[in-house]
C-alpha cells in the first residue's frame, strides 16, 4: 500500500474544519492562537452551532479571528468584550456568545468588564489567552508577565517594586459566584490540545444551558514576544508559566 493509495477520502482521519476558512492566519509561526482558533472551529462545526454563534474579538493579536472563523463576529474596543457580549447575550439569549481575549485585554484594561460579567453570571464563554505579553503591539509587559520576565517595557525583567506582581486573575474569577466553570488549559502538546478542546466544548455547553459564565484560560506561547522558537517557547512555558498558572479545572459546578 503506497502513499497515494492511503491518501483517499475513505481513509480520512483529520482535516481542517470548514468553519476555519482558507484565509492564511497572520499569527507568528507556532503561535497558540492558531491552535485555539482551530479548536473553536472544530467544536462549532461538530455541534452545528455556526448559525447560533456570535464571537466577540477585542483588540489584540486575535482581533483578526473574525477573518478566520466563518461565524458572525463583533469587534470590541480593547477590554470591553465582556460588556459587548453581555449586550448580545441579554438581547439574544438563545445564541452561543463567546469572547476571545488576551491577557492585557482581560486582566488590565478590561478587568472591570471581566469581573462584572462574571459576577452577573452572564451566560457567555470567555476564552482567555494568557501568554503574559502584549503581542500585537510588539511584546510589552502584561498583567500576567512573570517576575524577572523580559519584555519591551520591562527590558531588565519585570521588577515587583516597579511593576507589581503577576496578576493571577483566574484565581479571582473562581471566587465570583456567577462563574460556573473556570479552568486553565494549554495547547502545548497533543494531550493539552485534546483537554483544551474538551474544556472549550464544556464552556460552550454551559453557556447554552445558561449555567453562568465559563472561563477557559489557555496558557499560551508568544514565540516572537519571548524571542524563542515555537518549540523552545513551549518548553519555557512548561518550566515558567505553568508553575505560576497551574493547569486544571479550578471550578466546575
Amino acid at each position: 500500500m503506497n502513499i497515494t493509495e492511503i491518501i483517499h477520502p475513505a481513509n480520512l482521519v483529520y482535516k481542517k474544519p470548514d468553519v476555519l476558512n482558507d484565509t492564511p492566519m497572520h499569527y507568528c509561526p507556532g503561535c497558540s492562537h492558531g491552535v485555539v482558533h482551530k479548536l473553536i472551529a472544530e467544536i462549532i462545526e461538530e455541534n452545528n452551532w455556526q448559525e447560533k454563534t456570535i464571537g466577540v474579538a477585542p483588540v489584540g493579536c486575535s482581533v483578526f479571528a473574525y477573518n478566520y472563523l466563518d461565524i458572525d463576529w463583533q469587534q470590541a474596543a480593547h477590554g470591553r468584550a465582556p460588556a459587548v457580549a453581555t449586550g448580545i447575550k441579554r438581547l439574544l439569549p438563545d445564541r452561543l456568545v463567546f469572547t476571545y481575549q488576551g491577557d492585557g485585554d482581560l486582566a488590565a484594561i478590561g478587568t472591570a468588564e471581566t469581573i462584572h460579567a462574571c459576577n452577573r453570571g452572564e451566560n457567555i464563554t470567555i476564552i482567555f489567552i494568557n501568554n503574559a505579553i502584549y503581542g500585537m503591539t510588539g511584546g510589552q509587559m502584561a498583567p500576567t508577565t512573570l517576575e524577572n520576565m523580559k519584555t519591551s517595557t520591562s527590558p531588565a525583567g519585570r521588577n515587583i517594586e516597579l511593576n507589581g506582581y503577576p496578576l493571577n486573575i483566574t484565581d479571582l474569577l473562581v471566587k465570583l459566584r456567577g462563574t460556573c466553570y473556570v479552568t486553565r488549559q494549554s495547547v502545548y502538546n497533543v494531550a493539552g490540545v485534546r483537554k483544551a478542546k474538551k474544556a472549550i466544548q464544556k464552556g460552550f455547553e454551559n453557556s447554552m444551558a445558561k449555567k453562568g459564565t465559563s472561563i477557559i484560560e489557555i496558557v499560551s506561547t508568544c514565540s516572537s514576544g519571548w524571542k524563542l522558537t515555537p518549540d523552545a517557547s513551549n518548553k519555557w512555558m512548561v518550566a515558567n508559566m505553568f508553575p505560576a498558572y497551574e493547569l486544571g479545572d479550578l471550578k466546575d459546578i
Partner: peptide, 28 residues
C-alpha cells in the same frame, strides 16, 4: 513534509498541534 513516510501511523498528532491547520491525515 514526510521525511520518512513509511513510519507514519496516521495518529494525527501533527494535525492536533498544528497552529495553522495545514495537515490532513489519512489512515488505513
Amino acid at each position: 513534509y514526510m521525511a520518512n513516510p513509511d513510519s507514519c501511523t496516521g495518529c494525527a498528532s501533527c494535525a492536533y498541534v498544528c497552529p495553522d491547520a495545514c495537515i490532513t491525515v489519512y489512515k488505513v
